[in-house]
Design a protein around this nucleic acid. Structure first.
Lengths: 234, 234
DNA sequence: ATTATCTATAGATCTATAGATAATGC
DNA sequence: ATTATCTATAGATCTATAGATAATGC
């Protein structure tokens, strides 16, 4: 944590601490993703790591704090990656961004992240998905992800200047629902499709999701909007 | 519940039973929708109803059984309504069904159901949403909702004969994610939109969802499919 | 000396069951 | 007589804390 001021000092103690914390977070993430906040005891977490229950209390104030730390730990990485991708896309696209381009920066970047970083990150995705459909979870989502979402919507608005704000927000509502359903990897599509599609096939989602949702956004335009263009003349 | 066969017999005992069971299910549904299976104790449920904890055990084998009864109770009504709506749509549409038409029968019918039947049914929708992103929940979803989903996909396939099965399944995957996000009513879109959109505004969703998703389905066609038309010549 | 880890334990809560009581039903 | 409801309670589990022990760190 603290920068190693002296020489090769603080390997063990500080590292031991960091290690234990990471292991606890990994285990909690895994268990929370499968059983939810209340479906996991601190004893379960400790047991999964192979340490004593009280050590979890030593490092974390209480269960709620552990839960929020699990949420926060990887959130910033996800946000940063997508922010960067969208910034880059904005530069490339200049003054003619497309909905699909914005969505690709937003969605594909994140999908890639979990695939590339492997199992633990996939657990985090499932954790977020599970949490996202709960009232408390939505608050955490707001806290951590609102900036990156608003950035996405800003680009989409530029791509669709005639769409109403409400249409854009509802469009995002659909997108995030579909994304969370993907992250959840419940096996439902496997069952439904008789094995043709697999829940953990993020590549299949990546291939289809951005164009699918972009087409959806575009389709909203045709809706009759209360007081559309006539008002403002610039 | 059961039709009074004799005269005014079996009002009280049978009715008392039915009443208690319904009240317990209503309370459990409400609490499960907000806190999940493990976030609710049978004591909580009993307290919410105003009865003694042990009465819950009298009527239900255990917590898991109560949970599944909550899920099953309204599932058939939802399924039947949508089946009927889709059958009706098929008749109207003849041999030229559209994706949007099929989706309207599937989505709008269900959205209407919860709005029209009021608070308790809205709780059920939130319950389903919460459950849907969990591994155990997905099994229940399969058990109860697969037939109505397969019916929907059957119509969509007829509307999109050149789409691959995988495209159809993934399209549905997006649809159901968006729908569950709607049912969850977490308040996230309220926060995100600064109050412009409201989580419980199912009318706003109904207006946009079917056309949005239909456009998405249509867009998948353009994807280059591995071995598409060339092979089979009919 | 400091800090990571373990032992022991209090207090709360939860599930589930056995058995008593009170209300309806021929 | 049957069945809805309550009383009492066992046994398990869970959170959280106080205090002991063992390992690292100047």
């Amino acid at each position: 944590m603290v920068k190693p001021k002296k020489k090769r000092v603080l390997r063990s103690k500080a590292d031991q601490r960091a290690d234990s914390i990471e292991q606890i977070l990994d285990a909690a993430e895994y268990l929370f993703s499968r059983n939810g906040l209340h479906g996991v005891s601190l004893r379960d977490v400790a047991q999964q790591v192979g340490i004593h229950t009280t050590l979890v209390h030593y490092y974390f104030k209480d269960k709620q704090a552990l839960f929020e730390r699990v949420f926060a730990r990887r959130a910033d990485v996800s946000v940063e990656g997508r922010m960067e991708a969208m910034r880059k896309y904005e530069e490339e696209a200049g003054d003619k961004p497309t909905v699909e381009g914005a969505l690709r920066a937003f969605l594909d970047t994140d999908l890639d992240l979990y695939v590339q970083r492997g199992e633990y990150w996939m657990n985090y995705a499932a954790f977020c998905a599970r949490v996202s459909n709960t009232p408390e979870g939505a608050v955490l989502m707001d806290r951590h992800f609102d900036p990156v979402v608003l950035k996405l919507l800003e680009i989409i608005k530029r791509a669709l200047p005639d769409h109403s704000d409400a249409d854009i927000f509802w469009g995002y509502h659909f997108v995030t629902g579909a994304l969370m359903n993907t992250y959840a990897r419940t096996g439902r599509i496997d069952q439904l499709s008789g094995g043709l599609c697999r829940s953990d096939d993020f590549a299949a989602v990546k291939q289809r999701m951005a164009p699918f949702m972009a087409a959806g956004f575009l389709s909203l335009k045709s809706q009759p909007q209360p007081k559309a263009q006539p008002k403002r003349k610039k």
